[in-house]
Amino acid sequence: MNIVALIVSPLIALITGLFFLGLSRKISARIHWRYGPPVYQPFIDVMRAFSQKSITHGNFFDFGIILSLTGTIVLVLFLPIGGLWALNTGGLIMFLYLMLLGPFGIALSGAAAANPNSSIGISRNFLLALAYEVPLLLILLAVMTDYNTISLVEIVEKQAATGMAISSWRLVIPGIAYFLILPAILGLRPFEITGAVQEIASGPIAEFGGKHMAFYTLQHALQTFVGIALFVDIFLGGGTLFGLLNSLAGTVWVDILEIFIFLLKMVLVLFIGLFVNAVYPRFRIEQAMQYLWKWPTLIAFVGLVIVAIIN
C-alpha cells in the first residue's frame, strides 16, 4: 500500500490540484457572467511554460523552486487521500513544518532574483502566513488534544470508525474557524495579497518564467490541494461517508471509491470557498491580519478552550 501511495498520491494531488485551479477559474468566470476558460486550461499553461526558454539568476534561484516543489510533494505523502497514505512519521507536527518548505523555497528563490517586487511579495507572504498560522495552530492543537494523538492517519481512522463525517461535536467550532481561514491558506481573493498582480507585479514570482513558472504553477496546484485536503481529512472524515462502503469492506473497490468520495468532498469545499473568492475585493495586509487575528482566532480559541476543559 505504501509503495503504491508513494507513486499514486503525488500524481492524484498534482492532477486534482491543476483541475482545481482550472475549476476555480471557470467558476469565477461563471459568477462574473463570463464563459471562462476550459477546465483543463492550467495544463495548457504548464505545457506552454515548459516549452519556453526561462531565465535564471544563479543556482540558488533554481534551488529555491526545486526545494519548494519537492517539499510540497513530500507534504502530499503525509495526507491520507481516502485510504491512501505513504508517510506518517512525525505526525501533524511534521506536517506543519513541511508546509513551510513550499513558501520558504519560493521565498529563497524570489529573493535570490534580487527584485524588490519579489521581496515585498515575500514579506507580505510571511506576514499573511503568520496571520493565518495563529488560528491554524489553535485549530490543529484542538484536534490533536481532542483525539490525543499527533498522527494524521490515526485522526482519520478514528473518524472513520464512527462512520460519521465529523466524529465529535467538540470539533465543530474549530472546523468553522478553519473554514474562515481557508481562503487565506489557499491565497484566494480576499487574501490574494502575496501575488498582487496590479501592485507588485505578482510578487515573489515576478522573475519566474519558463520552467520556473511551470514549477511554480505545479507547486501552487499542490498547495491548493493540500489546503483543502487537510480540511477534509481533519473535519470531514477523509474518505468515509456515513459507512456507505461498509458492505464492500475488504475489496479493492473500497480504496478506489474512498478516493472518489474524498475528491468529491474536496470539490464541495472548493465550491463554497470560490463563492467568497469571486465577490470579494482584496484586503490590505493590515486588514487581513486584523481580520484573521480577530474572528477566526477568537472562534478557534473558544474551540480549544472547550476541548481542553473537556479533556
Binding site: F50, G58, A114, F215
Partner: peptide, 19 residues
C-alpha cells in the same frame, strides 16, 4: 525534470524586471 527541460539563460542582477 528541471534539468531535462529547456536550459535557462543566466541573467545579471541589473536585467531585472522594473517595468
Amino acid at each position: 525534470i528541471f534539468r531535462i527541460s529547456r536550459p535557462a539563460t543566466l541573467t545579471d542582477q541589473y536585467d531585472n524586471y522594473a517595468a
